[in-house]
Design a protein around this nucleic acid. Structure first.
Lengths: 231, 231
DNA sequence: CTATCTATCTCGTGC
DNA sequence: GCACGAGGTAGATAG
């Protein structure tokens, strides 16, 4: 890992062309060869970057560039796509290297697979008398998140999303269309379950007779992480 | 901008919970208060982060932590969501600050809007005798990318994507459904135009009578950026 | 390997 | 301000 704080301008040519005028920025060169160009704002996305695998060639500035204050040129080339990044470096404010070694990696816990598991365990959130048939019920065009039966014994297909959008409704619609052709299952009603449902998606779903259910993740897992203490 | 290279462990509680074991990493604190935790690999996405607006409180380690080699604790709290990040810092290898100022920002050129413009200018790519009616033709459920007429004068609705997926076909299908109810337009045929079209999307489109057209961006703009020189 | 789907997505844009 | 779509999406996962 090498961290350089310097005046620089950056030109990228690849899927698009982009340019960054000369200004002070942070250049992060990782051990795998990748390069990130960060400013003092924005979010975690760099202003510009090159991802591994890539090679960096340092070129000496020519006389004209040297006169203009250019101290170094980094030409970064993506190995597979040929995308190019040219970093023109002026004044260097700091330059430090340190070997970090391989990172042990991030341990995540709980997102959408978790929602599906929780809903399967608390299937009566769909309404009293509901019973789970199975998770990941396989159809010819893919797995339905949850198949259940309501109090009358009729089939219910459930599509689960963290954020419910129109595409989720379309997906569920395709499943319902298919499943309702199966005499062993029909009639199958649909439930669109999500933490949030976009207004347009709700309108489309209800227009097609699909019921919308909002899932409260924190309540379902029985804790509110907002109030959990770290350590 | 403050750059710290140090041994650290990180705990995040928010949309999910995540943990990073103690290891050497780069901590990037931006002027807007945001914090990025980077390792020496991976892509431009940090291992963990907190985006602005957020506040960072530095806490002193207690006796037990100090004995374990903890030199500092950063408690980062997202102002709006309350998400928390706790960074436990051990040995510090380097620590540098520099004021970068406001960045002039990235200048982009040429992606999908460009594709639409190019296709409007070269509308005969859809077939001989085609004529442009207008770009961004407005309907009740949103704008159709391009409305044209074929050699016989019949309406053609075009959906443009860089990468054509199933969602794009669904989108065009909704437009066609709506437009074919308008006696002034009907019958309207559909064209799904993209640089790449996913096999499933192509199957779905053709099954619905929608024609697929592959767009060659480089050919349409008349240059190949792979061979363009920087400077 | 390819294809699909998610994301603490981020980022723009239009309303 | 929110809603929606695009991304040099990146990253995980299933086939």
């Amino acid at each position: 890992m090498r961290l350089v704080i310097a005046n620089c301008s950056v030109d990228y040519i690849g899927r698009l062309t982009a340019h960054l005028p000369m200004a002070p920025r942070v250049l992060m060169r990782k051990a795998d060869g990748s390069l990130l160009v960060h400013s003092d704002g924005g979010s975690y996305k760099p202003l510009n970057w090159m991802s591994a695998p890539c090679s960096i060639v340092e070129e000496a500035p020519d006389a004209t560039q040297a006169d203009a204050g250019v101290t170094a040129l980094w030409r970064v080339t993506q190995t597979k796509t040929g995308d190019q990044l040219l970093v023109t470096i002026g004044e260097v404010f700091s330059d430090h290297s340190h070997d970090l070694g391989k990172d042990p990696g991030l341990e995540k816990d709980g997102v959408e697979a978790h929602l599906q598991k929780l809903l399967a365990d608390q299937i009566d959130l769909l309404g009293e008398g509901h019973a789970l048939v199975r998770r990941e019920y396989m159809t010819a065009i893919g797995p339905v998140d949850i198949l259940a039966r309501d109090a009358t014994g009729a089939s219910v297909a459930v599509e689960i999303k963290r954020r419910g959008g129109i595409d989720g409704v379309e997906q569920l619609t395709r499943y319902l269309e298919l499943m309702n052709r199966d005499p062993l299952l029909a009639p199958v009603s649909g439930v669109f379950a999500a933490q949030e449902i976009a207004p347009q998606a709700r309108t489309l779903a209800e227009d097609r007779g699909i019921r919308c259910v909002i899932l409260d993740y924190d309540e379902m897992r029985g804790v509110d992480p907002r109030h959990m203490r770290l350590f």
